[in-house]
């Protein structure tokens, strides 16, 4: 276990992340006042999560803390507060389905049922081959296209079981 916040043991920033990752995070740091590097914590966690197949390990959170000169507990607080950070492995395609009111009255239940049956998993689970995971989410601000889900970064609206099949079959 590494001891953080100990200047003797602190690493150079260059040792923490690859150059590409650092450039990405540094772009975010540059948006905020110099003394507010921690404003980039949400972006840094997202970048690390994407780089790690969609979820965050404690080690990665510690790295983010070290890189942004934050205490690890502060980073854990952020990572556990916001619903888009995952602290357990997810599928290659994370399906986030909205079941809030506009989607619900447009029968999101039938989409949920279809997905659970097709993928043989429940909410919070990953398919055996690791390709899909399923997550119930709150209103995604696309209620006009209800029922809808998000896979990765993309929204899919006006879903029916048939549309769902063709979307999932079209993914790598």
């Amino acid at each position: 276990m590494k001891i953080l916040n100990n200047p003797l043991q602190a690493r150079n920033k260059e040792e923490i992340f690859s150059e590409e990752i650092r450039q990405d995070i540094d772009c975010w740091i540059a948006k905020y006042p110099p003394e507010w590097k921690q404003s980039a914590v949400m972006a840094a966690l997202r970048i690390m999560q994407d780089d790690n197949g969609g979820w965050l390990t404690t080690e990665l959170m510690d790295d983010v803390a070290e890189y942004l000169d934050m205490s690890p507990i502060h980073v854990y607080e952020v990572a556990t507060f916001y619903s888009m950070y995952e602290l357990k492995p997810v599928g290659k395609h994370k399906i986030c389905i909205c079941t809030n009111i506009a989607c619900m009255i447009n029968d999101s239940d039938s989409i949920v049922k279809h997905l659970k049956k097709k993928l043989e998993i429940g909410f919070g689970e990953v398919t055996e081959d690791g390709r899909f995971s399923l997550k119930e989410v709150e209103c995604l601000g696309a209620c006009g296209g209800a029922p809808m889900f998000q896979i990765g970064r993309k929204y899919y609206e006006n879903l029916t079981p048939q549309v769902v099949d063709s979307i999932l079959d079209g993914l790598e």
């Binding site: 905020y32 507010w36 921690q38 404003s39 980039a40 914590v41 949400m42 972006a43 966690l45 997202r46 942004l68 934050m70 502060h74 607080e77 952020v78 507060f81 916001y82 619903s83 888009m84 950070y85 989410v137 709150e138």
Partner: peptide
């Protein structure tokens, strides 16, 4: 960019969120 939290729409929660909290 937010991280998925309805309460961050509340203006002061949103400010806290930009501050990395």
């Amino acid at each position: 960019l937010g991280g998925g939290a309805y309460v961050c729409g509340e203006e002061t929660a949103l400010l806290e969120s930009i501050e990395g909290k």
